[in-house]
Nucleic acid binder design. Structure first.
Lengths: 185, 185
DNA sequence: ACGCGCAAACCGACCGTTTGGTATGTTCCT
DNA sequence: AGGAACATACCAAACGGTCGGTTTGCGCGT
């Protein structure tokens, strides 16, 4: 039995707090605010404690990226599971995830991650690999060129939404893109 | 007459060298390499000289952005001038500019600028205003929703191209998008 | 059951470097 | 002469990272 007070040493919980703290910091303060000091403080740990879990900052950021990719995986898989139609299911889930403000809005980790994509080739590779693997996995149902155009347009809409502060109503665009993923009879 | 040697004091030339140096630095070394020191050195000037032309770093970066926007303006206008068809002319020029590697490739200033978009709200506003003004200006010929989708897809393709190192051949996509801007008879 | 050792977990002070920015000159042109 | 156009020296702050020390908990021998 060890479910005692909070004073116990639970490294897994600390590691989780570090990753969550980094993500929250990136979402609300921007990617530049993700410093070793700030992340450690947000997790209730000192710098020394942080460096025990991650050898350097790059490892910390990479861990945060991988964590977010896992969550995105779960979101997309859940959406695909509740989709009756096989054709374009992945593209629909992808579009749905992007148009979900809570997951991809300015106040999200991805907004900050977009900033670091062009800077760090390693993080760029992480995302590129994820996307490539997903496209390849669902090639049977989502390999059509028309679906690729839909995904690209969703990416563009997401980027435009991030940039333009007073974002317009995009529900019409979302419906349009969703309709473009339906099989043509 | 004052067209003498290069030893004369020509503040306009220095200012130009600073903007070009900043752009070149951002393109080849990434946005993080755009520091006061590096830019001044690239322009053959010391820090003090730079701060004579720009009150702070934000003003320097803003000037660099405005400079690039002017160049983009010229590129698009030139493309539109040589376009016989009125409908979708702006969208076609926009797509053409994006798919021009020299202007928008990874080795371009825009690749670095994309990184700073999410970080700095001011720079974000500069781009958002430019885009909004352009769309409004060409609303008569490029206001159709189908054309907006094309522009968004071009943005998405550009972003994907920046992220994925081994970029695939996108000439087919470029033709597809271009075809989608033609008037439907 | 009980101490005991040892490694994992964490702290806190320190370091070298870089950054944007300032203050005080010095040179150049009109 | 006087201001614009630069140079030079300096500064405080923040960053990533290191290092020695301290605490916690678990295994192990008896």
């Amino acid at each position: 039995m060890n479910g005692n007070f909070a004073r116990r040493k639970e490294p897994d919980a600390v590691r989780r707090a570090l990753l969550d703290g980094a993500a929250s910091l990136a979402a609300h303060e921007g990617f530049a605010a993700v410093t070793i000091q700030s992340v450690a403080k947000a997790a209730g740990v000192t710098k020394g404690g942080l460096f025990h879990h991650f050898p350097n900052k790059q490892a910390l950021v990479a861990g945060m990226f991988a964590d977010q990719l896992e969550k995105l995986d779960a979101t997309i898989d859940a959406h695909m599971a509740s989709d009756g139609e096989a054709y374009g299911a992945f593209t629909r889930a992808y579009v749905a995830a992007i148009f979900d403000q809570q997951a991809f809005g300015r106040q999200s980790v991805w907004a900050a991650m977009a900033a670091s994509f062009t800077a760090d080739p390693m993080l760029r590779g992480l995302w590129a690999n994820w996307y490539r693997a997903r496209v390849e996995r669902h090639h049977a149902s989502d390999g059509a060129p028309a679906l690729e155009v839909v995904r690209l347009a969703a990416d563009g809409a997401w980027y435009a939404y991030l940039i333009d502060d007073n974002a317009p109503d995009d529900s019409a665009l979302r419906r349009t893109l969703d309709a473009m993923t339906r099989p043509t009879p």
